[in-house]
Structures are given as C-alpha cells and as structure tokens.
C-alpha cells in the first residue's frame, strides 16, 4: 500500500490527537509520573526490539509491532493487558502482516523465555509467564482494539527517498535511520505521518553531520513547525535517556504499573 498513505487506515484512524492521547493516559498517570510512563513504554520497545532481533526479524516488522503496541496503549490502560504479553503478541501479529512467514508459536514462546532470562533478568526475576494460548487470545484483543488496521506506514521508505533526493551521502542515511529507530520510543508514530518523521530524522542527522540543507528543506515545502515538533519529541527522548540506567530502574518502574485483575474485583482499590 505504499502508494496511498492518505487513504490508509493509518492516516485516517491512527494519527491521533495529542490531547486525546494525554487524556487516555490519565488513568495510568495516577500511578506514575509522565516520565515514568514513558520509560515503561521505552522498556517494552526495547524488549520488542531484542525479541525481534533474536527471532531474526527485519526492522520493518519490529517497527510495525512497536506501533501496534503503542496503538493499544493509546486507547487502553497498562492495566488492561500485561505489556509483557502484548509485546510478543504484537511481534507475532506484525510478522504475519509483514510477510515474514509465520513464526511458530513454540519458537516465539521459547524465545521469550530466553530473552527474559538472558537479557531482561534485571527487570524480571521470574520466568516469562505466558504460553501460546495466552498469546493467541491476546492477538484477538489486539486486532479488535486496532479495528483491524494492520498496515502501518513507516518512515524508512520515505527516508531513503529523501536521502536520495538530497544527493546521496555516505553517513547520512544510517544516521537518520537510527534516529527513526529511536523515534519508535516516542509518541511520534501516533501523532505524525511517517514522511514527516522521516524528514525530522533527516534534519537532525544533517545537523549531526554538519550539513547545510536549509534550502533543500525550504524547497520541499513541508510544514516546518511540525518537523520541529517531531524533533523536540525525539530530542527529549535523548535527554531522558542521558541520565537513565534502565537496568537499575526497571524493576521499580514495572512495580508501579497497574496490574490486571483476573477475578471480579470485590474491593475497588483504584484510588
């Protein structure tokens, strides 16, 4: 569907309003600060990245899974489904949509076990607690919650296009590409069209590479205010991670998350 972002479900249903996003988050923000909330989402993006790499998935699949994950928690509290379950589910669903070929259920669960044990033991003392049937059940909820919008447009393709247009330069693409990867750890994929995210990352990469591209940006006639907003999101992510050691903080952060209740709750202890 590369040709048609403007008619896509991504554009029409899943570019959300910033105010709506903040409002939906209020529930979770009773239990934690905005920064902590952001760190929790970053943690699970890292988890999906590691899991995806372990499964030898392409970045495109991981990026799509990250967007699914964000879409779900844009409309639901962290309490609704344990993100540790939703994360592999998003990877599973994205791998089917992005045509990687089906990952077998057992391989997915086994890899989750390995990854939790070897790479995220700083956050989880116990084993990965879910089995195949949990993931399959969760998949229906994820699909339903996204209103079956599965095709996600990513900034990678427009990025490549823009870099070529600019006149290809060795280090520019990889630098900007990494920034696109980092952008997945912010809200921008819910707030802006992918081509704008690509341009923002390209602009930051040009700054890093000390390349003067003002005239190029002026020529393509894009809303520079939007591009700058995106840059601010990504830069604040870099700020946040500067003095942040996930290994040290993860457990405490995860403990703050509101947890799902499996049984009908007798006492309301929300407040």
């Amino acid at each position: 569907m590369a040709g048609n972002f403007w008619q896509s479900s991504h554009c029409q249903q899943w570019i959300v309003d910033r105010q709506d996003l903040i409002r939906e988050r209020q529930n979770d923000l009773q239990f934690m600060s905005e920064e902590e909330h952001q760190k929790i989402l970053i943690f699970f993006c890292n988890f999906m990245q590691t899991l995806g790499e372990q499964l030898k998935l392409r970045q495109q699949v991981i990026a799509t899974a990250s967007v699914y994950f964000k879409r779900f928690y844009a409309r639901n509290s962290l309490k609704c489904i344990d993100p540790l379950l939703l994360a592999p589910t998003a990877i599973f669903l994205a791998s089917k949509v992005e045509e990687f070929g089906v990952i077998s259920n057992s391989r997915l669960v086994t890899t989750c076990h390995q990854v939790v044990k070897s790479k995220f033991n700083y956050a989880y003392a116990q084993d990965f607690p879910y089995r195949t049937n949990h993931i399959l059940e969760c998949e229906f909820y994820l699909l339903e919650n996204m209103d079956c919008c599965l095709i996600v447009y990513q900034p990678y393709r427009p990025l490549v296009h823009f870099v070529q247009d600019m006149g290809y330069e060795e280090q520019l693409l990889p630098t900007a590409w990494r920034m696109v990867n980092d952008s997945l750890r912010t809200d921008v994929c819910l707030l802006y069209p992918p081509y704008q995210i690509a341009l923002a990352c390209l602009m930051m990469a040009c700054v890093v590479m000390q390349k003067d591209t003002k005239s190029w940006f002026a020529d393509i006639g894009v809303d520079m205010e939007k591009i700058q907003e995106i840059c601010r999101y990504i830069l604040s992510f870099y700020d946040l991670t500067k003095n942040y050691d996930e290994k040290k903080e993860a457990q405490a952060l995860l403990a703050k998350m509101p947890k799902p209740k499996t049984q009908p709750s007798r006492e309301e202890n929300k407040h």
Binding site: M1, S9, V97, L136, L143, C148, I151
Partner: peptide, 18 residues
C-alpha cells in the same frame, strides 16, 4: 481457527482497499 497468515493478509489488505 485463529488468524492464519493468509487470513491476516486478507484482512490487512482488504481493510485498506477502496
């Protein structure tokens, strides 16, 4: 039962096509 890869593709594409 469930979402096979072809079901997934069918839904993903049809959802977009108009």
């Amino acid at each position: 039962t469930g979402l096979s890869m072809s079901a997934c593709r069918e839904i993903a594409l049809l959802r977009e096509l108009k």
